[in-house]
Design a protein around this nucleic acid. Structure first.
Length: 447
RNA sequence: GGCCUUAUCGUCUAACGGCUAGGACACAGGAUUCUCAUUCCUGUAAUCGGAGUUCGAUUCUCCGUAAGGUCACCA
């Protein structure tokens, strides 16, 4: 295909949410796949509702996701262009100035209406097939309040024409707008672009996704600790598939495999669990430095200070932390719950907690911990790894009952009912700290 | 209400008109190291209803039903 030009045209009356991201992504993919251009156009003809903060949010979100645009426009800066076409249509007789009875406060007594030829419009939708409308019911619809104030339908058509847009990929809600836009196109003498309408993204109750259902701005997903790769992968697969069972798909692969014809027709319910699953996957393939930075950022101040003073420990616990979360945002909640303290400070716990459920005798437990001490005492400081520690203890633990050895050992190191296994813990803490914590536990047991 | 669109496991989806309707998330059970989490294995689970065309329908046609969109001097 030659000279493909697509566009993403949000109105800055709200934040960039997950549905818009998918529309932007598909348009972007199609342009990139065909070596074409991707245009970002801010549709801010409604001066009342358009807000700069929303535009900033949209730009911020797209940049974060890496959906780069080749050209950027604001409709509010293109008044002369619309005016020129408006004058031409009026001169041609395909539009006219109409006297009106104001129906609501603020209504004009004069607007510009389109002279509807009243025919049936049939267009081909790449995602759905042929669609026909009888446009008679539209009447002579309003296309501008005056020469300086074009309305949505008119501005869109003029812009797509002027910018040479070849493929319009947009939401399902644009489908009913298409006939009247085609009418305007024909009056303008503009070529008809290829259309592809995307099904809606729905809430779990199948209603339109809204803030109430977690339709957050992508910038909020970023704050919650989702990765752009996960967001992109997730939205790509809502309403499209690569033609095989592949679930993990990179942007580069999407560019290769994307096809308008494979776009789903029915709406898709937003499934946060799948997003989390994808995010967990992408967190694991993140570089250690990036993961470390994300984690550190979520730590409360005191914990962060300790971690920064002990980079050695921090580097070792990244994988352990990653294992237990789906988003980086969970780190702060877990940290607040005291989850990571034991990596840096000796834990506090009661004697009872130290005892395994099937071995409540303090003296027996103390004896087993002392045995552990002697078994790991021989390991070289530099070879204090989960493997060597396990090798040293395993046979003994198996012989006398794994739980009766491993539970007290793990508890002595972490002071928590739930934690990584004792071998990993010991290797993270290092030989010296491990021994001192276990010794402390033995003293507590026979005190 | 008019018009437009859509309908496969709970969810995202696959299946030239032709194997036992496949995969993923979630869920359940099991295994891997005491706990938690990973990882692995196994399992539960779907073609909206009714006609028609056909040797044969998830697939094509029609009628229902349900859901969504749209009917602005918003976008």
């Amino acid at each position: 295909m030659t000279n493909v030009i697509t566009r993403f045209a949000p109105s800055p009356t709200g934040v960039l949410h997950i549905g818009s991201v998918r529309t932007a992504l598909y348009s972007w993919l199609f342009a990139r796949q065909n070596g074409g251009k991707f245009i970002l156009r801010i549709e801010d003809t409604d001066k009342e509702r358009s807000k700069r903060e929303f535009e900033d949010n949209i730009l911020d979100g797209l940049a974060w996701l890496g959906l780069t645009n080749d050209e950027f426009y604001r409709q509010s800066e293109r008044g002369e262009i619309y005016k020129k076409h408006l004058i031409k249509l009026i001169a041609d007789g395909t539009a006219y100035v109409s006297k009106e009875e104001p129906k609501e406060p603020g209504d004009r007594t004069e607007v510009i209406r389109f002279k509807n030829p009243n025919g049936v419009v049939t267009f081909r939708d790449e995602a759905r097939g042929d669609i026909s409308f009888d446009t008679t019911e539209l009447g002579d619809f309003v296309i501008a309040k005056d020469l300086e104030s074009p309305l949505y339908h008119f501005a869109v058509v003029v812009d797509d024409f002027e910018m040479g847009v070849t493929h319009i990929i947009r939401g399902d809600d644009g489908i009913s707008n298409t006939p009247r836009q085609i009418l305007i196109q024909e009056a303008l003498g503009a070529p008809r672009p290829v259309y592809a309408h995307l099904p809606m993204i729905l809430a779990p109750d199948k209603s339109k996704l809204s803030k109430r259902h977690g339709a957050l701005a992508v910038t909020e997903y970023r704050e919650e600790g989702y990765l752009p790769e996960a967001i992109l992968n997730f939205v790509a697969l809502m309403g499209w598939n690569p033609g095989n069972d592949q679930e993990i798909i990179s942007l580069d692969e999407m560019i290769k495999l994307f096809m308008l014809e494979k776009i789903q027709k029915g709406g898709a319910v937003f499934n946060i669990d799948k997003l989390k699953w994808l995010n967990k996957h992408y967190m694991k393939v993140l570089t250690t430095e990036n993961a470390e930075a994300e984690i550190l950022r979520r730590f409360p101040d005191d914990l962060r200070a300790k971690a920064e003073n002990n980079k050695n420990i921090l580097a070792k616990i990244v994988l352990v932390i990653l294992d237990h979360i789906s988003t980086f945002g969970e780190v702060s909640a877990l940290a607040d719950a005291g989850e990571y303290g034991y990596f840096f400070d000796d834990p506090e716990y009661s004697v009872d907690a130290l005892l395994w459920k099937d071995e409540k005798d303090k003296f027996v437990a103390e004896g087993k911990l002392r045995k552990v001490l002697s078994l790991i005492g021989d390991i070289d400081d530099n070879l204090f790894t989960p493997e060597t520690i396990k090798t040293a203890i395993w046979d003994y633990a198996t012989e006398v009952g794994r739980g009766s050895v491993l539970w007290p050992m793990r508890y002595a190191l972490s002071g928590r009912d739930k934690s990584p296994d004792p071998f990993v813990l010991a290797s993270i803490l290092g030989k010296e700290v491990t021994i001192s914590r276990i010794e402390k536990a033995t003293k507590l047991l026979i005190a």
